[in-house]
Design a protein around this nucleic acid. Structure first.
Lengths: 235, 235
DNA sequence: ATTTTCTTTATGTCTGCACATAACGAGAAT
DNA sequence: ATTCTCGTTATGTGCAGACATAAAGAAAAT
């Protein structure tokens, strides 16, 4: 064989990627099966399997039993964004973190919220709003609805010191989550608490979480104009 | 053992997740090592390893050689967004796809572009602008700079029929990519071609790609107001 | 006390082998 | 021709055993 021993799953992956990038294996074309590749690379089939499995997960290859493996025609690359507590986000930028509770009250959530949480209307929930500060300047607004049926202990917790963002993460585990990113002009509320001009363009991240079948919370994080969400590179 | 045989990596993962959700294993706490878990679940260590490895990749567990495995204190959950060609995006919504080239010319890109592509200034690049239509209505604008040094064949390609988006993906492979999401008020250009009112809030996705060391392209996709980027759920 | 070296431990990976499972396609039964 | 059955094939997964490697902690040397 011209290729020297390629006997780590990482090096197999590298070689496969090289062949795809160099069009030795063209988009849509089938590649040799695992057994043959293992023979060529002089390694175990398990090793080849792991290399190819990961590439399939990342969308570069398409695999089907019996049919074999082919190079994806229109690779759907997956951009991964890290979702973490806002305090961490701010601290990672090297800024000092500050937090202020705006209000906390029980009420009936608007349609948009019950819809996103897959709930019928009318149920009372806890509404918590707060502002996260970076070096004393408003960095993001948190507008959160907490389901009191799933998280009754939230009613009595005072969110003045610790943000609901952190409190929930530490105390209420979740199973399932959705995330959605959108842009809107700044609302009057956002204008006031983010201290931005009229009609500024605000980036929002909406996130709903569930614990088993029970809805936990729905939150909108609204960032200062100019904020960017940056994806860590994949493939 | 109280637990019946758990001998697929998927079921091991489920059981581990169950214990984390039920606080049997608390955030920050160490969990038994692979060998012990394999014994308890009556399966091979390989199986446990795969289950735990995946959970570590998804940020739920933190693993370190010798130290062992612990439940992440502040899990950084990873939201995955699918990045694909705009035509597919539109077709998946059940709309008919349309495309129109706005202009194509050679010029010097602005600072923002050369910065994102990690280039010095002054190099001439191909600037292509186009609009993608869903059911005849503007869906997104594509504003793209193509590096003629890396992709010289782009100069002579006529982007009137096929969008640069698709042409590049089919003809110029890339290794590395960055992605960034932001919101801005609609520019005059966007107002005109997206047919939106003054000061509308536009969601942009910026993406730069490289082939080995060579910059390939930098593109901004600007969506209609109200557009959402939705993440596929992870764990 | 500080630094260096060694041992121990848990994870990381590779291997060969086995069997499970999806799915294509040939051939039989209708 | 259509439907059904079944063998073939490639991927998916499980296992035991082995060695590699990072890293914490103990022991030894300075």
């Amino acid at each position: 064989m011209s290729t020297p021993d390629i006997n780590s799953w990482q090096s197999v992956q590298d070689e496969v990627l090289r062949r795809i990038h160099n069009r030795i294996w063209k988009p849509g074309a089938q590649i040799p099966n695992e057994t043959d590749l293992a023979k060529e690379f002089n390694c175990g089939r398990t090793t080849v399997n792991r290399a190819l499995r990961e590439l399939a997960e990342s969308g570069i290859l398409e695999r089907k039993r019996k049919s074999g493996t082919r190079v994806a025609l229109h690779p759907v690359s997956r951009a991964v964004i890290a979702v973490q507590i806002v305090r961490r986000e701010i601290e990672e930028r090297g800024a000092s973190y500050g937090y202020a509770l705006i209000d906390k009250r029980v009420g009936t959530p608007p349609h948009a919220v019950t819809f996103a949480m897959e709930l019928a209307q009318g149920e009372e929930m806890l509404h918590v709003r707060a502002v996260h500060l970076a070096d004393g300047v408003p960095y993001a607004l948190e507008d959160r609805w907490i389901c009191l049926r799933t998280v009754p202990q939230a009613r009595d917790y005072d969110f003045a010191q610790k943000s609901a963002n952190e409190w929930l993460l530490e105390n209420v585990p979740y199973n399932r989550a959705t995330l959605s990113i959108l842009a809107t002009p700044a609302s009057a509320f956002e204008q006031e608490y983010l201290a931005v001009p009229d009609k500024a363009s605000i980036l929002h991240v909406e996130r709903a979480t569930w614990r088993d079948k029970g809805p936990v919370t729905f939150v909108t994080i609204s960032y200062q104009p100019g904020h960017r969400i940056i994806s860590t590179t994949t493939s």
